[in-house]
């Protein structure tokens, strides 16, 4: 049973891990799918009062592997790649180490299935708009057409690189075909650059907001602005260089070394190390405690209004 989730390095195989293309593997895949579908239909008949326990059970079991992996005793400097576990406790600990990867990846695989749900919903909304000829339905058409074209050329390009390019010739643009060019133009030429443009636009809004809304009306606003101002001034090397020159000149003319403490980089460095970092750390502590509490409540099914409600 401990072979379950464990890696079997080819050509070694076990009950859970079969060589590709073998009857055993195909039977396993089909069988597991049928069991999954039976589970699907079985669950759909569960009475209302038991549903919460089903969801809490799945959530708890999924999290348990990680909690055990962290808390399970493990000999110091154990290297189970080279050494065999000496007893059942060590054996279970070694198994937890290799089981983590396939269990954790389950989250991504399920999330990927659910991502399709988001795209399906988006398409449904826009297709309905087109069918009803709602206002600005033309834009919905543009959205659908551009997503379909991107998907077609994206898959086409992937298919060519994945299955028809053993020599990796397509890494060089000289060997590109029509689909590779179109995919590159859509992805790198448009999508990626539009992404960068979207993010960069925030700078314009920040400038406008700073001009209109960043007002010194309270002690809090003044403290925040002073902190931000010192940090921003310190970001300007030309300014800190001139300031340092001025301070060094003062130190030389007066002989007072204490004045070096007024060097902008020194002031900014002190502020960052002794006030900004602990303040941010406090914020992170607060967020971290909240995340820990939320994590435990979700795992144990105590969260009201969560998935288990």
């Amino acid at each position: 049973m401990l072979q379950f989730l464990a890696q079997a390095t080819p050509p070694e195989t076990n009950f859970w891990q079969q060589a590709p293309g073998t009857t055993g593997l195909i039977l396993g895949v089909v069988g597991a799918f049928i069991i999954g579908m039976l589970l699907f239909f079985g669950l759909s008949t569960i009475p209302t009062q038991f549903r919460r326990y089903i969801i809490v059970g799945f959530t708890f079991l999924a999290g348990l592997v990680f909690v055990l992996q962290y808390l399970w005793p493990r000999p110091i400097n154990a290297d189970f790649e080279k050494e065999l576990p000496r007893n059942a406790v060590e054996g279970f600990g070694a198994w937890l180490g290799v089981a983590i990867d396939p269990v954790a990846k389950t989250a991504n695989i399920l999330a990927a299935f659910l991502l399709g749900l988001g795209i399906f919903s988006l398409m449904r909304v826009h297709i309905n708009k087109i069918r009803r000829r709602a206002q600005d339905w033309g834009f919905s058409l543009i959205l659908i057409v551009s997503s379909v074209i991107m998907a077609i050329f994206g898959f086409w390009d992937w298919n060519m690189r994945q299955f028809n390019d053993p020599e990796a010739l397509l890494t060089s643009q000289e060997n590109w075909k029509f689909a590779n060019y179109v995919n590159d133009a859509l992805f790198d030429g448009m999508y990626q650059q539009m992404d960068a443009a979207m993010f960069s636009m925030i700078a314009f809004f920040i400038l406008s907001a700073a001009y209109r809304a960043f007002r010194i009306r309270s002690v809090e606003a003044t403290v925040m602005m002073a902190s931000a101002l010192i940090l921003m001034l310190n970001l300007m090397g030309a300014l800190t260089f001139m300031w340092s020159g001025w301070i060094n000149g003062l130190v030389e003319s007066t002989g007072n070394q204490f004045l070096t403490n007024f060097d902008l980089t020194v002031v900014a460095g002190w502020l960052r190390a002794n006030m900004q970092i602990p303040a941010i750390r406090a914020i992170e502590f607060g967020v971290g405690l909240g995340a820990l509490a939320m994590g435990l409540r979700l795992w144990l099914g105590l969260e009201k209004g969560g998935v288990s409600s």
Binding site: A62, V67, T106, L114, A291, S308
Partner: peptide
């Protein structure tokens, strides 16, 4: 309600790691 099962698994995997993460 069944749609909460895969979400529960994802959240379980996330929440089980929070002790170590913290």
């Amino acid at each position: 309600w069944m749609s909460k099962i895969p979400i529960g698994i994802i959240l379980g995997i996330w929440s089980g790691q929070q002790l170590e993460v913290w």
